[in-house]
């Protein structure tokens, strides 16, 4: 099989192992492209792509926009803050109006879970999910897994820990699904209040002890405390940021206590001093900036393969 089994990328759910391997193979070649003196190829020069960001997201939008421009696509950006959505227009109407201007592919980031799946069914275009609420963030999971395979060779049989705010994280769910497809052992770690009850049904182990998790894992993916999503209940999820940092923050002392090398990842943006200290984030164990670079290559691969599939 040399083509994707899907016509849209709405989530990792729906992809198979062959799809992921195909995306990684193309991303490897695109990584070479973005390190050339001229970092651009003409593959998508006859396509127009709309980036529809109904939620604030600087780096994902920048990464998608760079990926699209490196593939020579025409790009239009849309943000809900300055749009007719504020005037009461529905999602389908908004997107159909954009498509009427001859747009071939939409990248959508939306605060409502499953908005990209809904859109894929309702409109006649290719849909790429750039994050839907607390549901999925497939390109982030792909770039995380790609960065791990670059560092470890293969993630099959490796122990991967996802630490932090699992409850509000779309990165966590996509990461778990993607890493399980690739054959890794996945564990989540965090305070009880930030780990949803359904997580056990996804086949992952749960831990509330960071030091024990670090001793177990080969890779620690430190998730951001999503401060903007902490006020959805009248009772706080944890007493204070300081207390969270003491229990679940990764610092140099914790790293030095380990007798092995643990690869450190973070999807960004980092709350320095909360989930990870500067000393840990900037150490040679960290591949955080590799993740950012791989993000562009992975998004180029996804766009290229979806475009060739349609």
């Amino acid at each position: 099989m040399n083509h994707l089994s899907v016509h849209h990328l709405t989530g990792i759910r729906g992809l198979n192992l062959n799809d992921i391997e195909l995306i990684f193979q193309a991303a490897k070649e695109f990584k070479e492209v973005i390190n050339r003196p001229i970092r651009k190829v003409p593959s998508l020069r006859d396509l127009t792509i709309a980036n529809l960001f109904f939620e604030n997201s600087t780096r994902t939008r920048l990464s998608f926009e760079l990926a699209e421009k490196r593939l020579s696509a025409d790009v239009v950006n849309f943000s809900s803050a300055s749009s007719s959505v504020k005037k009461g227009e529905t999602l389908v109407d908004t997107v159909n109006n954009i498509l009427a201007m001859k747009v071939d592919l939409v990248v959508i980031c939306h605060p409502h879970p499953r908005a990209p799946q809904f859109l894929a069914k309702k409109v006649n275009t290719i849909v790429v999910n750039a994050g839907d609420g607390t549901h999925e963030h497939p390109t982030q999971a792909l770039l995380d897994a790609f960065s791990m395979t670059e560092r470890l060779g293969d993630v099959r049989g490796k122990n991967i820990a996802i630490v932090g705010d699992i409850r509000h994280s779309r990165v966590a769910i996509s990461n778990i699904l993607c890493l399980q497809l690739l054959g890794a052992n996945v564990r989540v770690c965090g305070p009880k209040t930030l780990i949803p009850k359904y997580i056990g049904s996804m086949g992952v182990k749960v831990s509330h002890d960071l030091d024990e998790t670090l001793a177990w894992c080969d890779v620690a993916n430190m998730l951001r405390i999503q401060l903007e999503r902490q006020d959805d209940t009248s009772i706080p999820y944890f007493p204070s940021l300081r207390e969270y940092a003491v229990g679940f923050g990764l610092d140099r002392v914790r790293l030095d206590r380990l007798r092995k090398k643990v690869t450190i990842m973070h999807p960004g943006p980092i709350n320095r001093g909360v989930e990870i200290t500067s000393a840990a984030a900037d150490s040679d164990h960290s591949i955080i900036l590799d993740q950012v670079e791989n993000g562009v290559a992975i998004r180029m691969a996804v766009l290229y393969l979806l475009a060739s599939n349609n």
Binding site: H3, A26, E29
Partner: peptide, 20 residues
Amino acid sequence: VTFHRDDFRRREKPLNPSST
């Protein structure tokens, strides 16, 4: 040359890249 071909999206089969 995969990413520079002029028959991308005009072929029956997708084009998969080799390494450079």
